[in-house]
Write a protein that binds this DNA or RNA. Sequence first.
DNA 1: TTGTTTTATGCGCCAAAACCGATATTACAA
DNA 2: TTGTAATATCGGTTTTGGCGCATAAAACAA
Lengths: 83, 83
Amino acid sequence: MTDLARTPQQIGNLVRRARKKRDLSQTQLADQAGVRQETISLMETGNPAARLETILAVLAALDLEFRIVARGKASPADIEDIF
Amino acid sequence: MTDLARTPQQIGNLVRRARKKRDLSQTQLADQAGVRQETISLMETGNPAARLETILAVLAALDLEFRIVARGKASPADIEDIF
DNA sequence: TTGTTTTATGCGCCAAAACCGATATTACAA
DNA sequence: TTGTAATATCGGTTTTGGCGCATAAAACAA
């Protein structure tokens, strides 16, 4: 489970995975995030010009968030495995 | 040190702090990221409609990256303190 | 204070996100 | 296969980022 998000594609994949994990359709997620289904579709397919506010809204709707960390550090998920 | 990035403002603040830590001017960072100084200025002041690709380019230039995690989890920085 | 660096703004331009409404296209189940 | 849900795409409109170019405003040092 890598939550690394260096490219729009990676972010799109993570959004899609998180959405399906919650058994939500794009339309349902769109409603919760206050955007359109089309917007979710574009984001999940790696739209590089997506707006920051849009992505933040979608992540929030999925109960996720961004963290900014130095490159190459161990991810929270990796460290969790210690416990 | 919180690397939490839930809002454009928080992201802007983190970018500014990381830039200053490296003793870079907005112009220098802009050059490295392949954008304009104006764009850095807007981003640091919390531009909510910044483009994803632009933010990713700036983070990369600062040797930073996004990670997507569940809300409320301990940050990598916190866990680092263990070591 | 004065001069220099740094950051914030300005206008015009182009491209594109996300909007509205709607439909084509898949994917999947009965 | 056939029907339905889900996802991708389209035309049109509005809005805005980021570009070039340029400058005003702030911050800071001599």
